[in-house]
């Protein structure tokens, strides 16, 4: 699957970017990330113009990077401000600087034609920095193409089979979904509202609910990168009031950033924000451990799938059924974004 250029992607958590140089490859482009003394996050191309040495293997001197091979020195705009042994700095001595926006605990970078970078188009995940929520999170590198993670997250019926004993129960696979596509805004929404479901350990242990639940899963995918799962858990039969706050229910906002690294590798950023037991460290620990386990179950499965697909001829055939309605919609929006990025690039 090709990449959608001229889009924003999560390159890191803000907490990962500091005074150490961090290497990340996004859409096949090697980046080096760091934070200036004033606290601004910077993303530069991770290849010295001189002999291509990775700047991420170099060192920071104040807000500049000094190449670890022969000392070419770059400022935060990517301009070379020093070369060894001579006064004249060649005019072309610069590395690309990427537009960066820090928002909702993520460091977003724009991959493409930087004149097209509009920060107002970045989708939001406000719960990750909202003091009324407690957040656990992580990042798992995936040895699989990003499309496989999109497929995986768009169809949660796999929870019943791949994540039984954690988040999956029989009702997930058995409950019909409604799928919506907003063609103008580029959003896919998949609702699965389970009126009477078993409570999986993930929620039984974290909420303390005993007995059956009303469980809603509302997926909101903002391709290419941001995936939100609004999860509502309540004692069976408890629905939101017609007006006012939904105080009888427990809410978890599950956020993924799906960032293609190379053709066959992906960064899987995951976070779980909850509005209950927010001061209870043991709940945080439990949810972190459980969600990490769930993510790794997906990673293992998708890494296997990548090997299978990579070894197959180009036009293998697959079969789609009702559960795939949301995934098919996501693929279509992604394909459109890939095309748009290509057309713009050749103009």
């Amino acid at each position: 699957m090709a990449f959608a250029r001229n889009q924003w992607y999560v390159a890191a958590y803000g907490s990962e970017v500091g005074r150490e140089l961090l290497a990340r490859t996004v859409l096949g482009e090697p980046l080096v990330l760091y934070r200036t003394g004033a606290g601004e996050a910077v993303a530069l191309a991770d290849r010295c113009v001189h002999r291509r040495y990775p700047l991420s293997e170099s060192r920071l001197d104040g807000d500049t990077i000094v190449c670890g091979y022969h000392g070419f020195t770059y400022d935060q705009t990517g301009s070379c401000v020093f070369v060894p042994g001579q006064q004249r700095i060649p005019r072309t001595a610069r590395v690309a600087a990427y537009p960066v926006v820090e928002q909702d605990s993520f460091v977003w970078v724009f991959i493409g034609d930087r004149d097209r970078a509009d920060p107002t188009t970045i989708p939001r995940a406000p719960w990750l920095t909202d003091p009324r929520y407690a957040v656990v999170r992580g990042m798992a590198p995936l040895n699989a193409r990003y499309g496989l993670l999109v497929d995986n997250l768009m169809d949660l019926s796999h929870e019943t089979y791949l994540h039984g004993g954690y988040i999956g129960t029989p009702e997930v696979a058995n409950t019909p979904i409604t799928t919506e596509v907003d063609d103008e805004r580029g959003i896919v929404y998949v609702s699965r509202h389970m009126d009477d479901a078993e409570c999986p350990p993930f929620y039984a242990r974290s909420t303390g609910i005993q007995g059956r639940i009303t469980r809603w899963q509302d997926i909101e995918y903002h391709p290419p990168c941001l995936y939100l799962l609004h999860s509502r858990i309540a004692p069976q039969g408890v629905y939101p009031p017609a007006q006012g706050e939904d105080t009888e229910a427990f809410h978890a906002e599950i956020v993924y950033a799906i960032t293609p690294s190379t053709e066959n590798t992906t960064y899987d950023f995951w976070a779980v924000a909850r509005d209950f037991a927010i001061d209870d460290e043991s709940v945080s620990e439990y949810l972190h451990q459980s969600n990490h386990t769930v993510v790794m179950q997906d990673v293992t499965a998708l890494n296997i799938l990548e090997q299978v697909i990579a070894a197959e001829p180009e036009k293998y055939q697959e079969l789609s059924i009702n559960i795939d309605t949301g995934g098919l919609a996501a693929r279509r929006l992604l394909a459109r974004m890939v095309d748009a990025g290509r057309v713009e690039a050749t103009r």
Partner: peptide
Amino acid sequence: GPARMLTGDRVYRIHW
């Protein structure tokens, strides 16, 4: 649950 979550003018829906 509610059958309509997105409110735009160009929304396509598939109900199972």
